[in-house]
Amino acid sequence: MGKLCPLCGPKMSAFCMVMSVWGVVFLGLLGVFFYLQAVTLFPDLHFAEEKDALDNNKVESAFAEKANQCWIAAGMYFVTLIIVFWQNKFNTASVF
């Protein structure tokens, strides 16, 4: 079996695997914390420069939005993980 679409070698794919595993875990948890509206993450929220004051609804929706954003990114890392895992398995097999 020849190399099918060899995007990255064994080292690169191992590195990416670690990164994406951590990405899934980290971003998943970060999403959970956004979802739980952790106060420590408040400075990370971004609000449009508007003249009217913040109210609770705005803040809550921003938290929910960021939680989703994190989970989507975590999902993307999960996809990356699958791709990289396939690459790793495949390329390692063809090395020997």
């Binding site: 990164m19 990405g23 980290f26 971003l27 939005e65 960021k66 954003q69 994190c70 989507i72 990114a73 993307m76 890392y77």
Partner: peptide, 11 residues
């Protein structure tokens, strides 16, 4: 765009 930038900036 936010999700993609999260994806990239996390890296």
């Amino acid at each position: 765009i936010g999700a993609i930038s999260t994806y990239l900036l996390f890296f």
